[in-house]
Each structure stands twice: as structure tokens, then as C-alpha cells.
Amino acid sequence: MGIEKNELVNDFPGQIIPGGNGGNITITTLDKVINWGRSNSLWSLYFGTSCCAIEMMQTGAARHDYSRFGFEVARPSPRQADLIIIAGTIVNKMAPVLRRLYDQMAEPKYVIAMGACAISGGPFYYNTYSVVKGADHVIPVDVYVPGCPPRPEALLEGMMMLQEKIRTESMKHKVNPIDGFDQGL
């Protein structure tokens, strides 16, 4: 079924992901199992550039403890990770590195932009010559967590939203967010 092509949809600037309907019982059941597994064992890449990294560490520490939701395995290598939490400012010198790390990750891969800097440049939006105004200029971002830095609870909320997003995926309509990203689609 999917979504009917009409004028409104053509004007929509983002990418439209069709809903999970239209699959048979095998596919939908498998989807459920796979998504359940994927969403509850997201391994994040250790990628903290500045202040938000401290709050990310606090989220992993004793009081907030994100291992309750299956996030505790922080990987130093992108090849073992499913998720980048961009915790901090991305500057022009770091942007190619971030893109390279993203490209090295195995699919499916997800990105959380944590904090004002990763969303838009934050406090470094004006009068600066070296800051990338948002990590989504470099790689596609799934979840934005606002704050400067966000509280650990906010990051947990963002991570759980990502889990919800993963639970709606279907193997029938596979969407790779990097497709057409460089062309601005």
C-alpha cells in the first residue's frame, strides 16, 4: 500500500518511510523479533568531543545507569558499534573524521545528536569560523537531544525514543538514511 503520491507529499522536505503494513505474517513476526533484539542491545560508539561527554558518562554511571536499557556496551571501534552518540561540538577538522567513522559502521546504524552543539552549533553558532553548525551537515541524525549539556535523564529519553523508532522498522521497506544524503535529499 504505502503512501499515495499527492501534492502534499511531494512538498514534504524529508524522506517518507512507509508504515509496516503490507507484509505477511512471517515478515511482521520476524520484524518484531529482530526489532526487539536490535532495540534492546544498541552498542554505542565512544564518541565524546566535549562537555556533553561528561553527562554521557554520568548517564552510564551508577545513578542513571543506562545499562538498564541495554546501552552499556560502549565500543571504542566503529566496526562493533550500532550507534553514535555525538556528544559535543563538531568542528571543521573533526567533520571528515566523524563521516569516516560513520561510514565504517556496519548497518543498521543510528545517530543521536546530543546537546546544542551537535544539533546546531549551539553557543558557537555566531562569530565562529571553525564550528560545523550541526552534525546533520555531516551525517544523518535520528534523534536530537537538546540541552547544553542535556541532563542524563534527557539522554535516556532520547535513547528510548531511538528504541521506539527501531521498533517500527520493517525489513520489507529498508531505508538507508545515508542514501541521497550528500545530494541533500
Binding site: T49, S50, C51, G88, T89, V91, K93, M94, V97, P123, F124, Y126, N127, T128, Y129, S130, V131
Partner: peptide
């Protein structure tokens, strides 16, 4: 790799605004 040009930004900001940049 995390050069955010804080010193240059200070040249445009008022003294009250500079304080919050030093947090970062």
C-alpha cells in the same frame, strides 16, 4: 579537533557573555 575559536568569539561578545563561553 575541537578548536571552537572561543578567543575570537570573545572579541565580539560583551563581558557578561564571555563568561558562559569559559564554561565550555
Amino acid at each position: 579537533y575541537i578548536h571552537r575559536s572561543i578567543e575570537k568569539m570573545c572579541e565580539r561578545d560583551s563581558y557578561q557573555q564571555i563568561v558562559h563561553l569559559t564554561d565550555r
